[in-house]
Design a protein around this nucleic acid. Structure first.
Length: 337
DNA sequence: CAGTCCCGCCAATTT
DNA sequence: AAATTGGCGGGACTG
């Protein structure tokens, strides 16, 4: 053993091909289709041609958004893109309740405003040092993912840098090391979010440093929206509970819930359309699919900025070829080239 | 050089 | 004890 594969550092190694974002795209494409209900980690790793470890990263992040839900050992339930809206709703409410809007203070500006409430960031429960298990979960990728989302959904600030997010989510410890580690994780999350089109990398007007902007999905109050907006408020009829309050033993985030139980699962998510080449123009609504998606997200409409669409399509195409390539490669290796 | 962030060691958890 | 999970951060890759 220990011969081929693995460190293919020779030849043409392209870091891009190994990115979490691409892996996420492939993962999503692989499971976003009819008949998919559960996902086996082993199968996923094999199909996608990556080590188990990487699957955990993807899965944990996606679970934080409600796309997946852990069922049992090695098994996850596919909830689909349709579950995202519900998850975001919950996260937004939680975030508001936890005053997440005070956590983000201008990146380059030290307003110290977060001193408003105690210095205890996130995890408002009283535990803090009781359960040892909770301690681990506190630093989990899944939780970080959710908190990252809350930052975007609850703050009026729309451009957030990873450093800013890390600073806010870190709450206190100024450890240079802790900060670095946190940012590394945020990069991971940002990459999968970017591949999904949930966020988009931009340039902070002020600092000129790279940052991210939430791509209009669950955006909260915009300073521009006056009280007269009304905006058809989503006020979904379903989901009335913020359940998951059982942060006790239940390790599952259970954000997904059953929310849109009736929504068709044939949702199309941006560039991930199986074959339909709709360019997100709600006009092409030959079917109600896109309409539904849009409706569910209650997004006024600007799903993806033209730029983003083009970008994603490119990524998409690239991913596809890569996917086929890898699949074939895998097969080859399997048979022992 | 400053951002990115892949890779995989190895500890915590679960079976 | 074995198998799963998955923090964590060194340091290779980009631009």
């Amino acid at each position: 053993m220990a011969s081929r594969d693995s460190r293919t550092k020779d030849a043409f190694y392209c870091r891009k091909e190994k990115s979490l974002g691409l892996l996420c795209t492939n993962f999503l494409r692989l499971y976003d289709r009819e008949g998919v209900d559960s996902i086996g980690l082993d199968a996923a790793a094999l199909q996608l041609g990556v080590e188990r470890r990487r699957i955990y990263d993807i899965v944990n992040i996606l679970e934080g958004i409600g796309v997946l839900q852990k069922k049992e050992k090695n098994q996850y339930t596919w909830k689909g893109f349709a579950a995202i809206s519900g998850a975001l709703e919950v996260l937004k409410e939680q975030g508001e309740k936890e005053e997440f809007h005070t956590y983000i203070t201008n990146v380059s500006n030290e307003k110290e405003r977060s001193l408003l409430s105690d210095s205890k960031t996130e995890c408002p429960d009283k535990c803090s040092k009781s359960d040892k298990g909770e301690h681990r979960r506190e630093k989990s990728l899944g939780l970080l993912t959710q908190n990252f989302v809350k930052l975007f959904l609850c703050s009026e600030v729309e451009i957030i840098s990873l450093d800013g997010a890390a600073l806010a989510l870190l709450g206190d410890s100024h450890d240079r090391t802790a900060m670095r580690t946190k940012v590394r994780r945020l990069y991971d999350i940002a990459n999968v979010f970017s591949s999904m089109g949930l966020i988009e990398k931009v340039r902070d007007p002020e600092s000129g440093k790279p940052a991210f902007r939430w791509t209009s999905v669950g955006r909260s109050r915009n300073r521009s929206s006056i009280a007269s907006d009304g905006k058809n408020c989503k006020r979904r009829a379903f989901g009335d509970d913020i359940t998951n309050t059982s942060v006790k033993k239940c390790k599952t985030i259970a954000l997904t819930e059953q929310h849109q139980k009736y929504s068709s699962k044939d949702f199309v998510f941006g560039p991930f359309a199986p074959n339909v080449s709709m360019v997100e123009s709600h006009e092409t609504s030959k079917d109600g699919q896109i309409q539904n998606w849009d409706n569910l997200f209650c997004a006024h409409r600007p799903q993806y900025s033209n730029k983003a669409v083009g970008d994603l399509f490119h990524h998409y195409a690239e991913a596809w070829s890569n996917w086929r390539d890898e699949a074939k490669d895998k097969q080859q290796i399997e048979h022992g080239s």
